[in-house]
Computed example of a mutant assay.
Amino acid sequence: MDSTPEALTTIAKTLPLEGTTSFLATTMTNPSSNIEHALRNAAIYHQKNNHPGQAEMIGIHLEGPFIKQNRAGAQPTSSIIRPDVSTFKHYQSLANDLIKLVTLAPELDDQTELTRYLYENGMIASVGHS
């Protein structure tokens, strides 16, 4: 969740050793301020770091915080919130439009508003923690 340049560089250097050439930097359910920090850092890293021989960070996977309380798994339940387009738009703005995949519990998405928004804007809504 820190998404520091050092952490992302370690990931980018290590993944090719396992045959992976690209990746999505992934957040997890956390307080909004932590998610915002990770998204900003990942966006900065994406702008400045694309080196030969390293896996390319091609976007961001937002895992949560739009998940179900009783299906949280390793995600902290205290930071789970209902799916919300305005919150997502705020996150996407901080991420410089790099969020490509969102794991959410669709049954919590009133009127499928966020799911529809993601689809209409070329992102993947992935059912998870549902």
Rank of each mutant, 00 (worst) to 15 (best):
T14E: 10
N50I: 08
S79V: 09
D109A: 05
L98N: 05
L24G: 05
I35Y: 02
H61K: 02
F66P: 01
H61N: 08
I81V: 15
E107A: 08
G73I: 09
L104C: 07
M123R: 07
A74K: 15
Q47L: 06
L108I: 11
P31H: 15
S79I: 07
L17W: 10
N34E: 13
P31V: 10
T103F: 10
D110S: 11
L101E: 13
Q47R: 10
P52W: 01
H46I: 06
L8Q: 07
G73P: 12
L94K: 02
Y45L: 01
H129I: 01
T4F: 07
N70D: 15
G64T: 05
I80N: 03
S130H: 03
R116I: 06
G73F: 12
S33P: 10
H51M: 09
T20C: 12
A42H: 00
K13S: 12
L39G: 09
L94Y: 07
P52N: 05
S3Q: 12
T20M: 14
H46K: 09
P83K: 03
T26R: 03
E63F: 07
G122Y: 05
Q111W: 10
I99Y: 08
Q75D: 14
T9S: 13
M1E: 12
D2E: 12
T115I: 04
E18Q: 11
A43G: 07
I81P: 10
M1R: 13
T4P: 06
I11N: 04
L98H: 09
G73V: 10
I60N: 00
Y91G: 08
A95P: 05
P52R: 06
S93Q: 14
S32D: 15
A95L: 07
L39S: 04
L108E: 09
T20G: 11
S130A: 02
P5G: 09
A95F: 02
Q92Y: 03
H37Q: 12
Y45N: 00
A38L: 04
L39F: 05
L94N: 06
K68I: 03
G128S: 00
F66D: 04
F88W: 03
K89T: 07
L118S: 01
Y117A: 00
E18N: 11
Q69Y: 15
